[in-house]
Measured scan of single mutants.
Amino acid sequence: GFPHNFQETTYLKPTFCDNCAGFLWGVIKQGYRCKDCGMNCHKQCKDLVVFECKK
């Protein structure tokens, strides 16, 4: 597997964290999205993600 390539992201529609399944709250920059596989997560979850990037 590969490490994720997370970038701070502004979501335009309701989005949930792929790590904890919690809602990504806020208006802008609600969470992080992996540029390579599209995984979404909270800032506090991005260092805890157990799934490797599937590129």
Rank of each mutant, 00 (worst) to 15 (best):
F51Y: 14
V27A: 10
C37I: 01
T10C: 08
W25N: 04
G1C: 15
D18V: 09
K55R: 04
G26H: 04
V49H: 15
L12D: 04
E8K: 14
K13W: 09
A21Q: 05
G26E: 03
Q7W: 05
C20S: 00
R33G: 09
Q44Y: 15
C20G: 00
N5W: 09
W25Y: 07
K29V: 05
H4T: 00
T10N: 05
W25R: 07
C45Y: 02
C41S: 11
V27Y: 13
G38I: 03
F2N: 15
C20H: 02
E8F: 10
F23W: 13
F23S: 04
F2C: 07
Q7S: 09
K35E: 14
Q30T: 02
Y32P: 01
E8R: 11
F6D: 01
Q44P: 09
G22Y: 05
V50S: 12
F23Y: 11
D18P: 01
Q30M: 03
E52N: 08
F51N: 15
T9M: 14
L48N: 05
Q44S: 15
K54Q: 09
L48C: 14
K35Y: 14
Q44F: 14
Y11L: 12
F2K: 10
F16R: 07
N40I: 10
K55L: 01
M39V: 09
G22M: 15
F23N: 02
R33T: 13
G31H: 02
F23R: 06
P14S: 02
V49L: 06
G38Q: 06
H4Y: 01
Q44A: 13
G1D: 15
G22V: 03
A21H: 10
G38V: 06
R33A: 08
F23V: 09
D47C: 15
Q7T: 06
K13C: 08
C37Y: 02
C34V: 01
C17Y: 01
F23I: 12
N19I: 08
C37Q: 01
V27T: 04
V50M: 14
G38M: 10
F2E: 05
F51Q: 13
T15R: 05
E52T: 12
N19C: 11
W25G: 04
K43D: 13
I28H: 07
L24S: 05
D18S: 14
K35A: 14
T15S: 08
G26Q: 03
F16M: 06
Y11W: 08
W25I: 12
Y32F: 05
Y32K: 09
C20E: 00
M39A: 09
M39L: 09
G38N: 14
K46R: 13
